[in-house]
Amino acid sequence: MDNTKKLLRALQAEAMLTESCDLRAYLTGFFSSFGYVYTDWEESVFFTDPRYAEGAKEALKGQDTKVEIAKSAASVFDYIKTKKVKKLAVPMERVSVPEAAVYKKYKFKLTDSMPAFVEAMSVKTDEEMQNVAAACEIAEKALDKLYGELKEGDTENEVAARLEYYMRAFGAGDRSFETIAAFGKNSSVPHHAPDDTKLEKGMPVLLDFGCKVGGYCSDITRTCLFGKSADDHFAKIYAHVYDAHMNAAEHIRAGMSGHEADALARGVLEKQGLDKFFTHSLGHGIGINIHEYPTLRIGADCTLKDDMVFSIEPGVYFEGEFGIRIEDSVRLKDGKVESFMRSDKKLIIL
């Protein structure tokens, strides 16, 4: 994957310099903690240090971008200066104060590349879709294995670790984010940090997790019951969240705004008096980063397009009692939602 010239064409810039890890990875398909990608109309160069040089050369073999070892960041700027570049495109929101001082020292006139990155990264290629699909398949495979062995006395930390281990064992390169495992009343905290809470009969179990394949993320949340609860209140609330999820999945269309998409789920919960317990957005873009453009939330004016990948994740949270969230990673194809997930979203009692 080499997106350097694609971004340069979109920018219509004289030259482009990219230092942020995720944006470099998008340009080259190679992940590293240090490097700069310089691109003009004649060449594209990935400057890195000896830790990554061999791997980068192998990964970028046959592509337009060549690999060079940078002695220092200053050596990269010195190289660009020799190119007599007058206006340099950089992702302005990622530029720190010290970095801005360096650009000023070298007297580069800057233009912003970030809008072009946001737009390009929001619409996925077939290769990117394949990576997301593979990451989703692995996440669900890990969940299925975990469900088969959950037992009373397991801790949240143990369950989170097991999920992450299984995803790695099944072929993932990394987790997408810190795994959330929340039992009982802990599930009322949308981003609960797993602790030593032990699993007991009748507890809700909320699991929010994902993994990476080829650097691309998956994101899934499932909420189940570990044994039947004392009453059917949980099941009734779950059914409303499920209906909200399915209404959004069935009716989101290309051309809608993020606000309109969010309203499809929020409106279902509002009819049941539950919208005030839905305290976050309906979804977010998914790609190299776990949170990307577009955003599906109240007031979002972004326009949904075919080949965008995003989450649909309505949830309700009752402080000190329980929470329920149901999330799939999905894409827009032929104007409609197509989920990457195959697992059942209806309430499961283990």
Rank of each mutant, 00 (worst) to 15 (best):
S311L: 02
I312M: 05
K345W: 06
L207D: 04
H233I: 10
A53I: 13
D243I: 00
L350G: 07
I80L: 10
K333H: 13
G283C: 05
F234G: 02
F31W: 10
P190K: 03
L264R: 00
I348Q: 14
L269F: 04
R331I: 06
L225F: 11
F31C: 03
K5Q: 12
K333N: 07
R222Y: 09
F322Y: 15
E140C: 12
K141I: 09
A101F: 09
T111I: 15
A120N: 12
L296A: 01
T155N: 09
E137F: 13
C302E: 15
T223D: 07
K212T: 09
A244E: 08
E99A: 12
A59M: 04
R51T: 10
K57R: 14
K66S: 14
H233D: 13
Q130E: 14
F77A: 03
C136K: 06
Y79A: 04
M246N: 10
D243M: 05
P204D: 04
G202Y: 06
A265S: 09
F226V: 07
E327M: 14
T111P: 01
K109L: 11
D219S: 14
K66F: 03
V205Y: 02
C136N: 15
L163T: 07
F31D: 01
G258A: 08
Y238N: 04
E137S: 15
S218W: 02
H245D: 00
L8D: 05
S329A: 15
T303N: 04
D154M: 10
T65M: 08
Q63S: 13
E164Q: 11
G273S: 08
K57Y: 00
V118I: 15
H284F: 14
V95H: 09
V67K: 04
I348P: 00
I298P: 00
A89L: 06
R253A: 07
E42G: 14
R9A: 05
L269I: 00
Q130T: 07
A254P: 01
G273T: 05
N3K: 11
Y238P: 03
F31M: 09
